[in-house]
């Protein structure tokens, strides 16, 4: 599995982990991770990119679509453990204004 989901015991926090390359091939898999009732009920979404190697612009589109779908405001979705290249991409696309990048 390239996309793994994990809820905390109280179901308040959903962590979505992405392995390998985060690109258009993960479109459906990534969508399934948040496009469900449990995810709708979660108060916080964390996208863990510890195992993510590269991202392209479709990954940015998928993150933005997720945000719109979950009706989460800026900063309510966290993106954590980015490598330096990924962080640079978030930097030049000003994603730190829309997501909480840690």
């Amino acid at each position: 599995m390239n996309v793994e989901t994990q809820f905390t015991q109280d179901n308040k926090v959903l962590t979505i982990s992405i392995n390998g390359d985060f690109n258009f091939l993960l479109l459906n898999e990534f969508r399934k991770a948040y496009n469900n009732d449990e995810a709708d009920k979660a108060e916080k979404i964390v996208v863990d990119m510890r195992k993510t190697e590269t991202i392209d612009s479709s990954a940015l589109g998928m993150l933005l679509n997720m945000q719109r779908h979950l009706k989460k405001s800026n900063g309510e979705i966290s993106i954590v453990n980015c490598n330096s290249v990924v962080e640079k991409i978030f930097n030049i696309t000003h994603f730190e204004k829309k997501f909480s990048i840690e």
């Binding site: 258009f24 612009s57 479709s58 940015l60 589109g61 998928m62 933005l64 696309t93």
Partner: peptide
Amino acid sequence: DLTVNVSDKGVEAAN
């Protein structure tokens, strides 16, 4: 910005 916008809309269309 254009790149991000295109990807955003593209992903939305794909969905």
